[in-house]
Nucleic acid binder design. Structure first.
Length: 193
DNA sequence: AGCACGATTAACT
DNA sequence: GTTAATCGTGCTC
């Protein structure tokens, strides 16, 4: 039993899920130890018509999990060396997800520090592949049900972030994606204080 | 079978 | 500011 965000949270429009995940906590219970971080940046990827979204290629072995139920993990490998973590959104059959791009470490600090050895604290989890490395998220987590009561990886609600503290910008890294998808402001972040 | 490219990062100049 | 690292995926031949 835990206090994790329910499936109904993820079974909503992807933009809303991305925005509302700001301030929530991503938790990985690893060998009985909690690793967690406050979500400070996320991006929405919304269906086959979004040419920045992997599901633009339709249903393939890689994108199959995006067509499944909301609240499951989509973890994929890119640039030959990095794992990126997403959570599936909207109704089953509609291939959309939110990419978790950055967190602020809150629990399991020493383990994260060891996995990001030699780097300053601000560089531990301030990128989508950095946080998966620090929190120990990779291939085996793909397809995992993050809403299952016994899941080792899940989200916990946090203090709501008011609109005044939320910034939106275009999504990062979509160099060859055509407009309007390249510039549409589907990246959400907690504004620098 | 071959190829271009990628929801990135770290190390450079 | 630029660029190498490194390999799975999806597309073309």
């Amino acid at each position: 039993m835990n206090d994790s965000l329910p499936r109904s949270f993820f079974s909503r429009p992807t933009l809303q899920v991305a925005r509302d995940l700001l301030g929530a906590r991503l938790v990985h219970v690893e060998n009985g130890v909690r690793l967690s971080g406050l979500i400070v940046e996320a991006e929405a990827y919304v269906g086959e018509t979004d040419l920045g979204c992997h599901s633009k290629a339709g249903r393939t072995p890689r994108t199959a999990v995006m067509y499944g139920p909301p609240g499951h993990a989509y973890v994929y490998f890119t640039y030959g060396m990095h794992w990126l973590f997403n959570v599936i959104t909207e109704d089953e059959g509609f291939p959309a997800a939110v990419l978790i791009r950055a967190v602020d470490p809150t629990e399991g600090i020493e383990i994260m520090a060891a996995r990001r050895a030699g780097r300053p604290r601000k560089d531990w989890t301030n990128g989508p592949a950095k946080l998966t490395q620090a929190m120990g998220i990779s291939a085996p987590f793909n397809g995992l049900d993050l809403c299952a009561p016994d899941s080792p990886l899940f989200f916990e609600p946090g203090d709501p972030i008011p609109d005044a503290r939320v910034t939106t910008t275009p999504r990062v890294g979509l160099y060859t994606v055509p407009e309007p998808w390249k510039s549409i402001p589907w990246r959400f972040l907690i504004s620098p204080s």
